[in-house]
C-alpha cells in the first residue's frame, strides 16, 4: 500500500499497544488485588481477602495471557527491538519475571494449602509471598517502562547494546514510574472491588480507592516533573498536539472516576477508571511513536519482513473471534452474578 508505507508495522505496534492496555486493565488489577491482600487490615480483614480471592480466582490466568500476547507481538513483529530490550534490561526483566511467577504460583498455592474455605485468606507464608510479589512486579515493570521513555537504552553503530549507565533503570525517574504503575494497579483493583462487594466491605475498598487514586495523582505529577529534565523528548511529545488531546481526555476520565468514587457511583467509577488507563496508555503510545526505544530503534526500522507482520495481524480477528466470546462467557458467569454467596475455591470445593 503506497499511501501508507509502514501500514503493517503500525498495525503490529497498535496490536502490542492494545495488548498492553488489556494487560494493564485486567492483569494490573490483579496485581492491585494482591497488594490490597497484603495490606488487608481492620475488622473485615478476612472478608477483604475473601473478596479479592473471589474476584481473581476464575479470571487471573486469562488476564495474565495479555502479557504473553504483548511479548509474542514484540518478538514476532519487532524482533530486534525485543532483543535489545532483553539485553539492556536483562536484570530488571528477570526480577519482574520472578515476581510474576511467584505471584501466580503463590496465589494457587495458598488456595490449596488446606481444605478449608478460608484457606486462601488465612495468614500464611504463601499469602505473604503473593502480596509482596504483587507489590514488586508492577514497580519493576513500571521502572523498565521508565528506562525506555528515559532514552536510557542505546545501540551504537556496531550493534552494541547498553544502558547509558548500569543503574539507568533505577533512577528516581524510573522508580517514580514504578510507583505510578503500582498506585494505578491499586486504584484499578480497589475500584473494581467496590463493584463486586456490598455494605461496609464496599466502603473499605472505596477508601482504598481514594488512597490509591491520590497516590496515582501524586506519582503522575512527580513523573511529569522529573520527565521535564530526565526524559525531555518524551515530555515534549506528550504535551504536543499529537498526544495532548488524548492525554487530556484521559485526565478528564481520571477526574470523572474520582468524582464517581467520592459520590459512590460505582459503575461509573469502573468505567471512568478503565477509560482513564486506556487513554493514558494510548497517549503514551502516540508520544512514543515512531520510536520503540528512543532514540535508536523505530518500529519500522526493526519490523520483521511484511509477510510475518501480515500473518500475525490477520490472525488477530480469527484469534479474537475465538477468545473474545469465551472471555465474555467467563465474565458473564463469574462477574455479572451478585456474589453474595461465598464462592468456594477449587481446593475447598466438595
Amino acid at each position: 500500500m503506497s499511501g501508507w508505507p509502514n501500514l503493517w508495522s503500525d498495525l503490529s505496534a497498535a496490536t502490542a499497544l492494545v495488548g498492553m492496555i488489556a494487560y494493564a486493565l485486567f492483569g494490573g488489577a490483579d496485581f492491585g488485588g494482591g497488594v490490597w491482600d497484603l495490606f488487608a487490615f481492620g475488622e473485615r480483614k478476612a472478608a477483604q481477602r475473601q473478596a479479592i480471592q473471589r474476584a481473581m480466582g476464575p479470571v487471573w490466568e486469562a488476564n495474565h495471557v495479555w502479557l504473553i500476547l504483548v511479548i509474542v507481538v514484540l518478538f514476532t513483529c519487532f524482533p530486534r527491538g525485543y532483543s535489545v530490550l532483553g539485553v539492556a534490561l536483562f536484570l530488571p526483566f528477570h526480577l519482574a519475571l520472578i515476581g510474576i511467577m511467584l505471584r501466580g504460583a503463590s496465589f494457587v498455592f495458598r488456595a490449596y494449602q488446606s481444605p478449608q474455605k478460608e484457606a486462601a485468606t488465612t495468614p500464611s507464608v504463601w499469602g505473604v509471598v503473593f502480596g509482596v510479589a504483587s507489590l514488586i512486579s508492577p514497580i519493576l515493570l513500571g521502572a523498565a517502562f521508565g528506562a525506555v521513555t528515559e532514552g536510557a537504552i542505546r545501540v551504537d553503530s556496531e550493534g552494541q547494546i547498553g544502558l547509558i549507565e548500569p543503574d539507568a533503570w533505577r533512577t528516581p525517574y524510573c522508580i517514580a514510574n514504578g510507583l505510578l504503575a503500582l498506585c494505578t494497579c491499586g486504584y484499578l483493583a480497589a475500584v473494581y472491588l467496590t463493584n463486586e462487594t456490598h455494605g461496609p466491605l464496599r466502603e473499605d475498598f472505596r477508601r482504598r480507592a481514594i488512597v490509591a487514586g491520590t497516590g496515582t495523582a501524586i506519582c503522575a505529577a512527580v513523573v511529569m516533573g522529573l520527565a521535564r529534565s530526565e526524559a525531555t523528548w518524551f515530555y515534549e511529545r506528550l504535551w504536543s498536539l499529537r498526544s495532548l488531546p488524548v492525554v487530556v481526555c484521559g485526565l478528564g476520565c481520571f477526574v470523572g472516576s474520582a468524582w464517581a468514587v467520592f459520590s459512590r457511583h460505582y459503575v461509573w467509577s469502573r468505567l471512568f477508571a478503565a477509560a482513564e488507563i486506556a487513554l493514558l496508555i494510548v497517549g503514551w503510545g502516540l508520544a512514543q511513536y515512531p520510536f520503540l526505544i528512543y532514540p535508536d530503534i523505530t518500529f519500522a526500522g526493526v519490523a520483521a519482513p511484511e509477510p510475518t507482520l501480515r500473518f500475525l495481524v490477520l490472525s488477530l480477528p480469527v484469534g479474537a473471534a475465538l477468545v473474545l466470546p469465551s472471555l465474555w462467557l467467563l465474565m458473564r458467569v463469574f462477574k455479572n452474578t451478585p456474589l453474595t454467596e461465598p464462592v468456594e475455591t477449587p481446593a475447598a470445593a466438595q
Partner: peptide, 18 residues
Amino acid sequence: LGAVVGHIFGLEGYAFFL
C-alpha cells in the same frame, strides 16, 4: 526465530488463552 516463526507462538497464544 521471532521474525520467521514467532507467529506460531501467536497461534499458541490463542490456544493458551482459550
